[in-house]
Amino acid sequence: MRQNWWKVLGAILLLYSVVAGFLGDVPKLFILHETIRNLYFHVPMWFSMTFLYFISVVYSIKYLSSGKPEHDFMAVESVNVGIIFCLFGLLTGMLWANVTWGDPWPSDPKLNGSAIATLMYLAYLVLRNALEEEQKRAKISALYNVFAFPIMIVLLFVLPRMTDSLHPGNGGNSTFSDIDMDNQMRRVFYPAVLGWILIGTWVMTLRYRVRILDYEDKNISA
């Protein structure tokens, strides 16, 4: 249980974010109304996805220098869990956009960027399945991943900020820091982000450990 403190911390932070996220005070804004509370749930999905993709690219680089299959497993399982967070982010965003912007998919640079980034990471998984030989698969997909990560960052966090986007902090829109004047939202938002990142990492380590067991299984029987 001693090494598991961060899992408990993640659980506590999530629980806190739900309770404080629904009961805490939020700024009264036109159009948004209570849906501003979605910030505590929709945005952490994307932050967790980015964090998991970052772990993935770190382990891809590690794999390229070490050639250890464990590093490749860590990279692929991070993407596997990251994709789940990405899908949750897309679906919650579409639901929120439909109510707030009147369209589940308005032609917004951040949305279109996220669509391309999603396809890019789905392509990573398809690429892996297409390659039979294990070492070749690990090497090629690691290289692909090294290129995919910076493009994802640019598509999601750089390009939308250079043009007009409906998302806060992009183009002429007010940012997060303009909305929460006395920081009451930050006190829920940051713990929520950290909580989801910890839980996402936890699920990823579970998948990784199962994969290692599976790998050893095959090596013992072979």
Binding site: A11, L14, L15, V18, V19, F22, L23
Partner: peptide, 10 residues
């Protein structure tokens, strides 16, 4: 609602 979501989360 808070209780329901907390229960699911726990």
């Amino acid at each position: 609602v808070v209780s329901v979501i907390s229960l699911i989360l726990v």
